[in-house]
Design a protein around this nucleic acid. Structure first.
Lengths: 209, 209
DNA sequence: ACCTGAACACCGTTCAAGT
DNA sequence: ACCTGAACACCGTTCAAGT
């Protein structure tokens, strides 16, 4: 045996192990059918061990959901760094990155778009993550304003509309209401781009403005 | 006692009684905390009685969620009848009616925007209701095309973008991510109108087109 | 037809106890 | 510090039995 301990009495990284173990359970049972006891068992610990790392079951699910919102935030940061001179591209890629994350992580999406979040509590990690994601979008919009896009529209209106549209599209897709049960990444991306162009130019303006 | 029976051994309208009894339970415990047993007790029947009317707990929740989608459909039908010559107004009112329903029925919204729906099953009552709601929106858009709005845009793009935006706005509001915990109807309507105008004219076009 | 009570196999959460 | 086993008060669902 080497000097560094393995499989000690203490797990070492149980928190992450539980977050990982929850994914297959979500895929099999859905968010409503997931039990903390099964997640614990599948991580190889007793059913009370998770309480050392999560206040309760909702806290575990919240930690999973936070990853999704962080991805929306990271997507807008990445897009700003990748196309620093193209605010429209930043705007589109922010949405596409979010969509791709959801398509590639359907179990996390399932938790994000479910309603197991704490009643209100503005100090929750979920609200924190959501605020950061919105801030990323605000920055993208402000880059566009600096570049002279968006005419005299208010930043708040542009952010609110963009956010609603991307959230709605992604939620509807992830829940299978549009695009069929399993849209391919290409199909999904094509739909998203058409939606983005419709919003960009407006319902009543010609497509190529 | 009059001739018509009351409080017989048979309940008579237990199905509706259960749907009604679920609302206060949702308000108190949330969708994750709702139990069929509590709903049954609050309707004054044993905990097995609901199974005469609903296959299982998910079926009860689905029946509640269907009402929300029916409201989106009814809103577009009502708007078409009320302003038969004004397709833009039809479009805006469809969204506003949906928003008002959600604000006035937060418990139903909670179920609609939660993920307790059956895995896929295109024959589910939920998908049926959603399809009908989308059809209402399609009709509103086609009225606009007939009237010469929307230039050469495709109906599918217009429907998809409208649907995503209204769904996203309403979901974000109902879950408290935007507009604060309890937006007044006036505040909510003002936000919705600004979003609708932004989408109508586009991100990059002047507000008054 | 519609409703019930007992029963089964689960839950989430708490807590004294172990290493 | 971190993990466990027993215990509590619940669940959803099934089923033979009642009216």
């Amino acid at each position: 045996m080497s000097r560094r301990r393995r499989k000690t009495y203490h797990h070492g990284d149980l928190r992450n192990a539980l977050l990982k173990a929850a994914i297959p359970v979500l895929a099999r049972k859905g968010v409503a059918g997931l039990s903390l006891r099964e997640v614990a068992a599948s991580a190889g610990v007793s059913h009370t061990a998770p309480y050392r790392h999560f206040r309760n079951k909702a806290a575990l699910l919240e930690a999973i959901a936070v990853q999704g919102h962080n991805s929306l935030r990271d997507g807008s940061l990445a897009a700003q760094q990748k196309w620093p001179r193209d605010p429209k591209r930043q705007w589109i890629e922010t949405g596409l990155n979010y969509l791709h994350f959801i398509l590639e992580n359907p179990e996390i999406a399932q938790v994000m778009f479910s309603n197991v979040l704490p009643r209100k509590s503005a100090d929750s990690a979920l609200h924190q993550a959501m605020s950061e994601a919105i801030q990323g979008l605000v920055q993208v919009i402000e880059n566009g304003k600096t570049a002279g896009l968006y005419a005299n529209r208010q930043t708040e209106d542009l952010v609110l509309t963009s956010l609603s549209t991307v959230h709605g599209l992604v939620a509807l897709m992830s829940q299978g209401f549009i695009g069929g049960a399993k849209p391919s990444p290409d199909q999904a991306q094509a739909m998203a781009i058409r939606v983005a162009e419709t919003l960009w130019h407006g319902m009543v303006s010609p497509p190529s403005g």
